[in-house]
């Protein structure tokens, strides 16, 4: 895993493949914009009694105010304007909304990671929990989050919790699961000899946990935390949708769809993707530092 990660991270190994994919996506995107916006443009021109040449129509499909699919340069322009040209404290700033979402994501991830680890420790050590808890944990993930998110918001709102925490709880609900699964696997990863060794020292359960099971589980934990933090972001955005929240990437998506502002929706989506990448890469960085400290060949 580490070798691939290193070659992927090194500048010379990364630039060419990434640039190729980006170029392919951009070309495809422009083509789709022409295809999807064409009927609207020609209808508008017909209304105004105009007939455009093909290049004129294509040009128009790339510069509509409310296109079905905005072209990349429109999204980039909107993204640039709302990110860098507006004060970050303004409600029109994408950074403002991104920060609201990011803080709820990180809080939800922290809740979820702690809950996931506690559940895993319980499952590994208490036989009854192993049998009784696991089916519920799996069932919890089969419930569509879109269905229960509004209910969580309403219930927590009734007890006076609004704003950051309800969103964090929705994201926790989604992201504890991979942490539990990975951590259970990790806590059970020590082999028979490593466990027998502890027994020859008459080590207590607590010592076996701290000195053997927990360190052995760390690589598993990080693998699942990278999944969890990405899911946590999705959970937060979903949590922002039904709240009529005034801020956050989810709120931005919602208001964009109210007013048919597709350019705004797409630039918010771009911000969500960037935020997700930053969070996952940051987690990867912490992983490498931790594992290096634990003597791994990274």
């Amino acid at each position: 895993m580490s070798d691939i990660a290193i070659s992927f991270m090194s500048p010379r190994g990364r630039v060419l493949p990434v640039a190729t994919i980006v170029a392919a996506i951009v070309v495809l995107w422009y083509a789709l914009a022409v295809l999807l916006n064409w009927p609207q443009v020609t209808a508008m021109m017909a209304n105004n009694g105009q007939t455009g040449t093909t290049p004129e129509i294509i040009g128009a499909t790339w510069s509509m105010e409310r296109p079905v699919l905005p072209s990349p340069h429109q999204v980039i322009a909107e993204f640039w304007k709302t990110t860098f040209e507006v004060a970050p404290s303004s409600k029109r700033s994408l950074l403002y909304h991104a920060w609201i979402t990011a803080s709820a994501t990180m809080l939800g991830f922290a809740f979820g990671a702690i809950l996931g680890m506690l559940l895993a420790a319980g499952i590994v050590h208490v036989r009854t929990l192993d049998r009784s808890l696991m089916p519920w944990i799996i069932a919890s993930q089969t419930v569509p989050i879109l269905a229960i998110a509004p209910m969580i918001i309403v219930i927590l709102g009734a007890v006076g919790m609004v704003g950051l925490v309800p969103k964090a709880i929705i994201s926790m609900y989604l992201c504890f699961f991979p942490v539990t699964i990975g951590m259970v696997k990790g806590l059970r990863s020590p082999d028979v000899l490593q466990l027998d060794l502890m027994r020859t020292y008459s080590a207590g359960d607590w010592q076996v946990f701290w000195k053997l099971r927990l360190p052995a589980s760390i690589p598993f934990l990080f693998a699942s935390m990278k999944v969890a933090i990405a899911i946590s972001l999705v959970g937060t955005i979903v949590g922002e949708l039904p709240t009529g929240a005034s801020g956050g990437i989810g709120a931005r998506l919602l208001s964009g769809s109210y007013y048919g502002q597709t350019v705004q929706i797409w630039s918010a989506l771009l911000m969500a993707a960037l935020l997700g990448s930053v969070l996952v890469y940051a987690m990867g960085g912490i992983e490498r530092l931790t594992l290096r400290k634990m003597g791994a060949r990274v």
Binding site: L193, Q194, D196, L197, T200, K211, P215, A216, I218, A296
Partner: peptide, 16 residues
């Protein structure tokens, strides 16, 4: 703790 045990494999903890 009357005995020390040496296993077939070294059974070292790789993070130590």
């Amino acid at each position: 703790r009357a005995y020390g045990y040496v296993f077939q494999a070294p059974a070292l903890y790789p993070w130590r």
